[in-house]
């Protein structure tokens, strides 16, 4: 039992060292600044926004960036800076929310598949493979056709797409640990399945999956933006980076600022989360750093 008691202290020490190493890596520090900046902008959108993101003023359309409108205005005269801030809130809500839910479900299913009976493992693997065989766009189109476009639709599609990946990784690692000495010891001391999974196996398999999840966040942001760009995601008038990009595409010959306003946050956020994930991976698994 001392192992379980001492584990959090070890984790705290590791986490602190990892954080310091992250800040010492230029790429990691840059990524952290980007990610924290994007999250802060989304969280404090109400305070930072200079206007109501949905307020329509057609005669102010296509204004170039200036003091009144930091990123200019779109075809309906809406303030793009405010729309980008509130769009970030949508993007991060979808990305963090759906990745979190995917993680929970994926980890749970992966543990069950890896530690449970063979027939259940086979059944779950069949399910994961069946889901993975669907191209994401086709799955999204089918889902939206059946249930209509909405923010919920985006989240559900992302969860369905991501769960099998997480579950498979957790399953593989669980199978590898199932016969480890410390697990056998716990079993012989009378520990139940739930306790073994929660206390002995989960802490040893969760690290890599968290790194993978952080690297999936930009992918999810791109999926949300893509679906909204195609009119399959967030509904008007809710601001979304994909919808802003779509407005920019439709009016590209009038002004380039809308595309810039919709595209830059996607690029910066994607870069931020990707570099952060890579930096974390380099810290936790230095052998992969040179790849």
């Amino acid at each position: 039992m001392s192992e379980a008691v001492s584990e959090p202290a070890v984790s705290r020490g590791k986490t602190a060292r990892a954080a310091l190493r992250l800040l010492r890596e230029p790429l990691g520090a840059f990524a952290l600044v980007l990610v924290v900046g994007v999250i802060a902008a989304a969280v404090f959108a109400d305070v930072l926004a200079s206007a109501d993101p949905s307020k329509i003023a057609p005669r102010d359309r296509f204004m170039a960036p200036g003091m009144e409108h930091l990123l200019g205005t779109d075809q309906l005269g809406r303030d793009l800076f405010s729309r980008v801030l509130f769009g970030g809130r949508i993007a991060l809500t979808v990305a963090l929310g759906s990745t979190g839910v995917s993680l929970l479900i994926g980890v749970a299913l992966g543990l069950v598949a890896g530690y449970g009976p063979r027939w259940l493992d086979n059944l779950l693997i069949l399910l994961f493979d069946a889901i993975k065989s669907f191209p994401t766009v086709m799955l999204a189109l089918a889902f939206v056709t059946l249930f209509g476009p909405s923010l919920t639709a985006v989240v559900v599609v992302v969860v369905i797409v991501n769960v099998p990946g997480y579950a498979r990784i957790i399953r593989t690692q669980t199978i590898a640990l199932k016969s480890a000495e410390f697990v056998t010891a716990a079993q012989s001391m009378g520990a139940g399945t739930a306790r073994i999974l929660r206390v002995h196996i989960l802490p040893n398999v969760i690290g890599p999956i968290l790194i993978l999840a952080s690297m999936d966040i930009p992918v999810v942001i791109a999926i949300e933006a893509g679906m909204s760009f195609l009119g399959l995601g967030v509904r008007p008038p809710t601001p979304s980076w994909g919808a802003i990009l779509n407005d920019g595409f439709a009016n590209i010959r009038e002004t380039v600022w809308i595309v810039f306003a919709g595209g830059m946050p996607i690029i910066l956020t994607t870069l931020g989360f990707t570099f952060l994930g890579e930096a974390l991976r380099d810290i936790f698994d230095p052998r992969l750093k040179a790849r």
């Binding site: 949905s54 329509i56 057609p58 075809q75 309906l76 009119g231 008007p236 008038p237 439709a250 009016n251």
Partner: peptide, 15 residues
Amino acid sequence: LNQSERLAAAQVIQA
């Protein structure tokens, strides 16, 4: 209809 002009008009109506 899925056209930019219709969507712009619809968004004003929505507002």
